[in-house]
């Protein structure tokens, strides 16, 4: 059974994660304090939800670099709605954020699956467009924490059953992840995404509605980023058009690739993506705990993505070798 565990794609990741936590603990025992645990946990939900959508797109051999801008535009618009209509229920706001995100994702999907634009070009263009629109709708002004409803901030402070660890936002992310796992495993659309990424022409010959299902992947990616926009408002309180969601696409793609989803599409697991997010979260908090300046963050992320790519490459070669021997 242990053997089987080690054959899994996630095994090396788990080992790296354990090693990292051990090293950081040895250097700074304070790392496992409730406060630091809470900051890892608070950092995760946004990333998990965006990464799950990004994973769906990458499964189909696509890429969505506009998620950071979708998060920004949807978060900005929802925060403005909550400011201007204080009686707005926050669950309705969550629906609104998801809906805005899904709509923006549908534009991506339409350009890619409908008009045949390459994913990198379409989403690079909408990255710019949505980012600019965030400034247009907000006139460059930020929404402050006192303008947002109290119970929205509570999502990031309190948890269910009177426990504050983990807070509601983490539960939201975990529920979304579980739902996504079921969707990928049992739904027609989920299976089709794997088929499309594995071999687009083959999938089409087998009767998979490639364009429709590709479109759906981008809508889902947008919806996830949209919901994350509201969680951003809950987590940070203030929503500033210049900073919300900036560069988030890099983190999301990193988490997906580190989690073992093949960049060539067709393979990947939710467990892997969750571990990828966790690894980035632990690195983020570890840098702070070890008193390493925040300036190191970007370089460390870049190096970790490269390492993950090389691991993925090695795993792919091993797999090919194994297949040839049989």
């Amino acid at each position: 059974m242990i053997n089987k565990l080690f054959q899994r794609r996630e095994a090396p990741l788990l080992i790296i994660l354990a090693a990292l936590v051990t090293i950081v603990c040895l250097l700074q025992p304070r790392f496992l304090s409730p406060g630091n645990l809470q900051s890892v946990l608070l950092w995760l939900p946004l990333l998990i939800i965006v990464a799950l959508g990004e994973m769906a797109v990458i499964l189909t051999r696509g890429i969505d670099v506009s998620v950071g801008s979708i998060l920004g535009l949807s978060g900005m618009m929802t925060a403005m709605a909550l400011r201007d209509y204080p009686e707005l229920n926050i669950y309705v706001a969550a629906l609104l954020a998801t809906g805005i995100g899904a709509f923006l994702g549908a534009i991506n999907g339409g350009l890619i699956a409908g008009a045949g634009t390459p994913p990198i070009v379409a989403t690079l263009a909408t990255l710019g467009i949505y980012r600019g629109l965030t400034f247009v709708v907000s006139s460059g002004k930020q929404v402050d924490d006192y303008q947002l409803p109290r119970n929205l901030a509570r999502w990031s402070i309190d948890g269910p059953f009177g426990l504050s660890i983990p807070p509601y936002v983490v539960w939201i992310a975990l529920i979304v992840a579980a739902a996504m796992h079921l969707f990928l495993t049992y739904s027609r659309t989920g299976r089709d995404w794997y088929a499309i990424g594995g071999e687009p022409d083959g999938a089409s010959d087998r009767g998979v509605p490639v364009r429709l299902q590709t479109f759906c992947a981008y809508v889902l990616s947008g919806a996830g980023a949209g919901l994350a926009g509201l969680l951003y408002a809950s987590r940070f309180g203030t929503v500033n058009p210049a900073s919300i969601g900036n560069g988030f696409e890099l983190l999301a793609i990193a988490a997906v690739v580190i989690g073992g989803t093949s960049i060539f599409g067709g393979s990947g697991t939710i467990a892997g993506v969750l571990l990828g997010c966790l690894l980035l979260g632990v690195i983020n908090v570890a840098l702070a705990v070890l008193n390493i300046a925040e300036t190191w963050q970007s370089a460390v992320y870049g190096a970790v993505i490269l390492m993950a790519l090389l691991t993925d490459d090695a795993a792919r070669r091993r797999l090919m070798k194994g297949a040839r021997h049989k």
């Binding site: 990193a254 960049i263 300036t295 970007s298 870049g302 190096a303 490269l306 790519l309 490459d313």
Partner: peptide
């Protein structure tokens, strides 16, 4: 044989980060 899109996305973060360091 890695896709240039992801490789350069990673080095985009890496090089920018090293400038920041």
């Amino acid at each position: 044989n890695l896709p240039s899109l992801v490789v350069t996305l990673a080095t985009m973060a890496l090089y920018r980060g090293m400038a920041q360091i």
